Amino acid sequence: MSGDDRGAVSVLVAILAPALLLLVGLVVDAGGMVRALQRAENVAAQAARTAGQAIDLPAAIGGGIKRIDPAAATQAASAYLSRAGATGTVAVADDLQSVTVTATITYRPTLLAAFGYRTRTLTGQSTARLINTN
């Protein structure tokens, strides 16, 4: 055997290992970010549905048009966001017929942090509308 090939594999591994690690990090952390974005959208949707159930009961029971109670809706959505580990905003429309919730979730990369990839803030938004059948 000739000694000419000694160390050739080591150089190849030294060159390819960081590139492969970066590629695996991209796959893992990009998937994690997609899941975090989906979670933010799902949390916003559920918080909006929760807020949409906070209606003005005296008006609804009296047979009037159903309207969202802004204070109760904001409290319900904020509580849901808090329980879900998210932050966000709640906005009740002027006509009191819809509520929009924006949920914000933080994603911390697992592998790409070694390459300087920082924490990302992801936002989801959803609107719930009342349906009046009167």
Rank of each mutant, 00 (worst) to 15 (best):
G7F: 07
L37H: 13
R129K: 15
G85E: 08
Y117V: 14
A44W: 02
T121C: 00
L22A: 12
R49I: 03
V11K: 09
Q38Y: 15
N42F: 02
R39A: 11
A54S: 13
A54I: 00
A79H: 11
S126A: 15
S82F: 08
G25K: 10
V34T: 11
R83D: 04
D69Y: 04
T119N: 09
T127F: 13
R39N: 14
A54T: 02
F115R: 13
T110C: 10
A93V: 05
G63M: 04
V92C: 01
A128W: 03
L21P: 05
V24G: 06
R39L: 12
R39Y: 08
S82V: 14
V101W: 01
G62C: 07
G124M: 03
P18Q: 03
R118T: 15
A54F: 10
R83L: 01
Q53T: 05
A77H: 01
T106F: 08
F115L: 11
A47S: 06
L21F: 13
M33F: 06
I65P: 00
V27M: 10
I15D: 03
L96M: 15
L112R: 04
R67D: 13
A17N: 03
P18H: 07
D4Y: 09
A93D: 06
G63D: 02
R120D: 14
P18L: 05
A14S: 06
R118Q: 15
